[in-house]
């Protein structure tokens, strides 16, 4: 068998091929629709869902794995978001829900509207530290751990940024054993935000320890302020 096409036929074939190629591309692109083009609901899949999950995660709502599948945990996260923002709690990401989500995940602006970034980069790290060190503690106990980090920034005996304090060798056992890399729950994110806004239930503490687990002489020698949950907070 031999293809013996004339020039004209060849051109025709080429045209058909390129048109179908173009159509394929166009379809592929339209598959990547932007978040907010349609209502997403349990069972939805794709890039839009992934975008939705990322945004929820960005403001502290845990969605499980960011996998582009609108599963149970995503539905629950959407419900919690709707509850906390006073929207209709139906677990579906409709126009209003997505608009609210976009608003809250947007960048900060100057008075003339110029974008200047998110201005919340340390919340995630502090939340991880709180979760790794204090999950299972009462909420105030978690805020207190965050407040200790914030107090260290103000103190002359420690470095001056959240990252420098958290990653200081031997400062937090949960950093040394890698628990810091666990993804924090919503309570820890909330506690981190509250501590960063300046809330301090510890009365100025810079150390804390679990009296049942610690024999370290130095930490026991520090002036104790109070006990919250399982931890004793000291100066």
């Amino acid at each position: 068998m031999k293809f013996d096409l004339k020039n004209k036929d060849r051109n025709k074939l080429l045209a058909v091929l390129s048109i179908s190629l173009f159509l394929c591309l166009a379809l592929a692109v339209s598959g990547q629709a932007a978040l907010g083009d349609r209502t997403l609901s349990p069972g939805s899949k794709g890039a839009e869902v992934k975008e939705l999950q990322k945004k929820l995660l960005q403001i502290g709502y845990q969605v499980g794995k960011v996998d582009g599948v609108y599963g149970k945990s995503t539905t629950e996260a959407v419900k919690r978001f709707q509850k906390n923002r006073g929207l209709k709690v139906d677990g579906m990401a409709g126009e209003k829900t997505i608009a609210e989500l976009k608003k809250l995940t947007g960048e900060s602006t100057t008075s003339s509207g110029k974008k200047v970034g998110y201005k919340n980069s340390d919340v995630q790290l502090l939340a991880r530290c709180i979760y790794a060190e204090g999950r299972g503690e009462p909420y105030i106990g978690q805020v207190a751990i965050g407040a200790c980090v914030m107090n260290r920034i103000k103190s002359s005996e420690f470095p001056n940024s959240i990252a420098a304090i958290i990653y200081q060798p031997k400062a937090f056992s949960a950093v040394d054993d890698g628990q810091i890399n666990l993804s924090p729950d919503e309570t820890a994110v909330k506690a981190a935000k509250e501590a960063m806004s300046g809330s301090d239930p510890t009365g100025g503490a810079v150390f804390y320890f679990n009296p049942e687990k610690t024999k370290n002489k130095f930490i026991w020698s520090r002036p104790q302020i109070k006990k919250i949950g399982k931890h004793i907070f000291t100066r």
């Binding site: 002359s156 005996e157 420690f158 470095p159 001056n160 940024s161 420098a164 304090i165 990653y167 200081q168 060798p169 031997k170 400062a171 370290n216 130095f218």
Partner: peptide, 18 residues
């Protein structure tokens, strides 16, 4: 101060240098 806090340590305490 930040460099100081990056050097390995076997414990944390109050440091006069810092």
């Amino acid at each position: 101060v930040n460099r100081f806090s990056q050097i390995p340590s076997d414990e944390i305490g109050i440091s006069y240098v810092e």
